[in-house]
Write a protein that binds this DNA or RNA. Structure first.
Length: 923
RNA sequence: GGGCGAGUAGCUCAGUUGGUUAGAGCGCCUGCCUUACACGCAGGAUGUCGGGGGUUCGAGUCCCUCCUCGCUCACCA
């Protein structure tokens, strides 16, 4: 494809595979995706750069359809803005993905050597992981090239690179200095498999059917005649071992008389007090709640309020342990048991004591680790937290004040809802893979120091220090992404100055809280303004049963397979066409052909338009469209130019404003743009239904003979195709580039690549473009008539036009009408006596098709009468409406006016048809 | 349980401030290998716009209600 061979020698079917690879190499080699920060490298560019930062895929990830869709969307937007003249930067990169990557490597090591990370030791494990990441990491970025992603690869970032690690440390220390980061002792979510704490977002609720156990706690003093015990409902009887109290609501009539007494725990017989706390819901269960401060976040709060002991009876791996408080909390038989086995065992023991009142089935939410799906254990421990409320307030304001628009709009409510209820963020992880927390402890001084530089000695006593062993939540580096990738915290960074804030953040809704909301908070906190103007949350890729595609479910599609079979353009076109605002993309993993044929077919269609064009237009230079006088243009020329204008306008509107005018979106703008499926449809319709189906077909006669008109036709054709290619380039970059490279020389090809050519603008078009509609109407009607009468495709028939007031149009366009409808067109004065079929055109003209022996008068009359009665019905409705004073008085004048015009038109047509029926059918 | 959204042709979806004859792609039916394209061309069929009620001159569009699905959050054990 690098050489230019005559297009007519090209195969009828476009072969994307080698073309795409070759073109991508040429784009990259030419450096056209590299953003130039000092000044626009292209003339006509806008002053404002356009910037997107890629949601960094996990460094160990392989490309799946979700990435395919996400990056296709980003690339469409990026290419559109690049062509619109913005200095464009799309920053690619990867995420070190703490837990995910550590899990992968742990499994790998286990498979290879049977060792655990503890066998290896921290240093060796991190070294091994680094090595693994270097081997496999970034493969996904290479794969993104295959789908055409026009990223600036010179700025590829990685969350664990030295630069970004520097940013992480700076961010931590600053927040620590502002006391927004603190160390807290409380119940957090703990994954007993990953052996780390998790944030609220990382422990996902899922509804499940469990059991609610009703257990009697005997009153220690023996109780009264009517009341020997207090019944407590619990879902986790194993935690009875760590119970330190029973709580009731202070106003609970039934129970408050027991406050201050004691009960004995089942199994262990330990005595605990009955306390009053408003947290208890007197309506639920028995109104009495067991308090287990170390194994339930709410109980912890209650425990703190009442200064209760907090024994821990479940260890890091989810096994029963003795808390070591000497209270004899755990029977020997339960020690070391898994928490779920222990639960069964406890139930048995409680039963054996006769204290299990009943067991109900119970629907409740259980939290699971988002990485390994293990049931999360609430665990009392020391962790680092970020105080979120001060960060959330301005992030809320940014969206409420429309500094940022969230699209589709409904996610805005979700965002606000979440931020309003935000709780502090647990950022420490008991992992080895990640950014080590930059805090050092001096044991003698009992002090801690957060530091930008590694500490080797205590700043106070000069004694030895030890660094906190934990690492930071992966998302602590991700939330800095829009500025850490641009050089922050280096204030002198030219990239940061030139490209922050970015424009669009394009991702899936799944990470709205994990990532998007936190980036907004970090952007405002560290950079003083929100990190982007638009958040676009696109749909999910699902199979035909609407199940999200995933490798583990086996319903995935490998984008690289699709690229290999049908081409990246096919993949992109299919994905973008299927992406309604807020809609999911449905694909059939069992039938790739069905899913991607529309995209492939469209690329082939473009390819064949290109073949036609080159074979007819040749290689010699064409006139520039602006040098052609309007009187030189045929109606067809004017028509296609007008269709170009409409398509350009539709595409512009669908893609919408790229950025707010003064930093704040108008309400209307928050709903405008990024309608990618509409953009794709407009461009597709232009190419297929207008350029190919009509203009090309109408043109065929004009390109044969040398002369001025041929030059005009060549010029318009090249211009139209050039415009269409430009409009489509963001969606199908490869085939458009391949074809554009072959356009004949001339003003059209003003750049080395279509990828950096100018986005089309509407141009002035002569009014007679509209007259071409008469041609189209005549052709369509004649084709219908042929089908009705089953006239053989090859047979040329006569078509006599009785023109109403545009005889000249039909005369001049007779050959086009004729060729497109298989007729010989003549303009005649009036009806003849021949037996004819009749066509009434919208403009009031009539076509008579003499079909002696074929035409069936009875049938013609039937058809006419049917049509007439339908028209009559509609006309009656219209007449009634216009006669309704309520309508004429209250409806807008423009609507009434339009209805009146329509009424006149329909009346005329009705009269004409009635006349026709009279003359043709008698009666 | 709280919040949000969706239900339009067999399937996937458009339908932008209410404006009258509700659209597209795929699929389906009929006829065509018409020298750019059969990955194509021409023609065609298909909708009680989830049910019910209301507002309005006019409702797929606004309001109420019910049904069904989905998303999201959640400290009633």
């Amino acid at each position: 494809m690098t050489q230019k061979e005559p297009l007519e020698e090209l195969p009828a079917q476009y072969n994307p595979a080698e073309t795409e690879r070759e073109l991508y190499k040429r784009w990259e080699a030419a450096g056209i995706f590299t953003a130039n920060r000092s000044e626009s490298s292209r003339s006509g560019g806008s002053d404002t750069p356009f910037v997107i930062v890629m949601p960094p895929p996990n460094v160990t990830a392989v490309l799946h359809m979700g990435h395919g869709l996400n990056n296709a969307v980003q690339d469409v937007i990026t290419r559109w803005r690049r062509m619109s003249g913005d200095e464009t930067l799309w920053v690619p990169g990867t995420d070190h993905a703490g837990i995910a990557t550590q899990n992968v490597v742990e499994k790998l090591i286990a498979r290879e050597t049977g060792q655990t990370r503890f066998d290896l030791g921290r240093e060796a494990f991190v070294a091994r992981t680094t090595e693994f990441v270097e081997e496999t990491g970034g493969a996904i970025l290479q794969q993104l090239r295959a789908i055409g992603a026009s990223c600036d690869w010179t700025r590829t970032a990685y969350t664990l690179s030295p630069e970004l690690s520097h940013a992480v440390r700076e961010a931590f220390v600053r927040l620590h200095e502002k006391k927004l980061i603190y160390r807290g002792h409380r119940v957090i979510h703990w994954c007993p498999r990953c052996l780390t704490s998790l944030s609220d977002e990382e422990s996902e609720h899922s509804e499940s059917t469990g059991k609610l156990y009703y257990v009697d706690y005997l009153l220690a003093d023996g109780g009264t005649a009517d009341r020997k015990a207090i019944t407590v409902a619990t879902t986790r009887p194993e935690t009875i071992l760590a119970d330190v109290a029973i709580a009731v609501h202070p106003d609970d009539e039934r129970n408050r008389r027991f406050v201050g007494l004691e009960v004995t725990l089942p199994v262990t017989g330990l005595r605990v007090p009955i306390i009053a706390d408003e947290y208890v819901d007197p309506e639920f269960g028995t109104g009495a709640l067991k308090i287990t401060p170390a194994h339930d976040a709410n109980d912890f709060e209650v425990g703190k309020r009442h200064k209760l002991a907090m024994p821990v009876v479940i260890d890091a791996e989810g096994r029963i342990q003795d808390p070591g408080d000497g209270a004899g909390r755990v029977p020997q038989s339960l020690l070391g048991l898994d928490r779920f086995e222990a639960r069964e065992k406890m139930v048995e023991m409680i039963r054996a004591e006769g204290r299990m009142l009943k067991i109900d089935s119970h629907q409740h939410g259980v939290r699971h680790c988002y990485r390994c799906d293990t049931v999360v254990e609430p665990r009392l421990s020391d962790q680092w937290f970020i105080r979120m409320q001060p960060l959330a307030a301005p992030a809320l304001a940014a969206v409420r004040d429309r500094k940022i628009r969230v699209m589709p709009e409904r996610w805005e409510a979700v965002y606000i809802n979440w931020l309003e209820g935000i709780r502090d963020w647990n950022i420490s992880r008991q992992l080895w893979w990640g950014h080590r927390i930059p805090v050092w402890y001096c044991d003698p001084c009992k002090k801690e120091f957060a530091s930008r530089e590694d500490l080797t000695a205590c700043p106070d006593c000069k004694g030895s220090v030890r660094q906190d062993p934990d690492v930071l939540d992966t998302w602590f580096s991700s939330w800095l992404w829009p500025f850490s990738t641009l050089g922050w915290p280096n204030e002198k960074s030219a990239d940061l100055k030139a490209f922050y804030p970015t424009d669009d953040l394009i991702t899936a809704p799944e990470i709205l809280f994990f990532w998007v909301a936190r980036m907004i908070m970090a952007g405002i906190e560290f950079m003083g303004e929100p990190p982007f103007h638009t958040v676009y949350l696109h749909g999910t890729v699902r199979d035909t049963n609407h199940v999200k595609m995933s490798k583990s479910l086996g319903n995935g599609i490998d984008p690289l397979d699709v690229v290999k079979l049908y081409g990246a353009d096919a993949l992109r076109f299919t994905a973008i066409s299927g992406l309604g605002m807020g809609a999911d993309v449905i694909l059939d993993p069992a039938d790739l052909e069905k899913s991607f044929a529309p995209g492939r077919n469209f690329a082939t269609k473009l390819w064949n338009i290109g073949r036609f064009l080159l074979s007819r237009v040749g290689d010699s230079p064409v006139r520039e469209i602006s040098t052609i006088g309007s009187d030189e243009l045929t109606r067809a020329d004017a028509w296609i130019l007008s269709r170009l204008n409409i398509a350009i306008e539709e595409c512009d509107r669908a893609l919408g404003p790229a950025r707010p005018r003064d930093g704040t979106w108008t309400e209307e703008e928050t709903r405008s743009g990024l309608r990618l499926s509409e953009y794709a449809e407009s461009a597709r319709r232009l190419v297929w239904n207008e350029l190919a189906d009509w203009y090309l077909e109408s043109l065929k006669g004009r390109l044969q003979e040398e002369g001025d008109d041929r030059e005009v036709a060549r010029a318009v054709l090249v211009h139209a195709f050039d415009t269409a290619l430009r409009l489509l380039h963001p969606i199908v970059p490869f085939v458009t580039e391949a074809l554009w490279q072959r356009l004949p020389p001339g003003k059209a090809r003003d750049m080395e690549f279509i990828a950096v050519s100018r986005w089309p603008k509407a141009m002035e078009v002569p009014a007679r473009a509209a007259e071409f509609e008469n041609v189209r109407n005549a052709v369509v009607a004649l084709r219908q008539l042929r089908a009705d009468y089953a006239i053989p495709p090859g047979k040329i028939i006569a078509a006599n036009v009785v023109a109403k007031d545009s005889a000249a149009v039909y005369e001049q366009e007779a050959s086009i009408i004729g060729r497109l409808s298989g007729t010989t067109v003549a303009v005649v004065d009036g009806p003849t006596s021949e037996t004819s079929a009749h066509i009434l055109l919208p403009d009031g003209s009539e076509i008579l098709v003499p079909l002696a022996g074929v035409v069936d008068i009875v049938r013609e009359c039937e058809k006419l009468r049917t049509e007439l009665s339908q028209l009559d019905k509609q006309l009656t409705a219209l007449t009634t409406r216009l006669g309704n004073e309520n309508f004429t008085a209250r409806a807008p004048a423009s609507v009434v006016q339009a209805e009146r015009e329509k009424h006149a038109e329909w009346s005329a047509r009705k009269a004409q048809m009635e006349e026709k029926v009279r003359s043709l059918c008698g009666s």
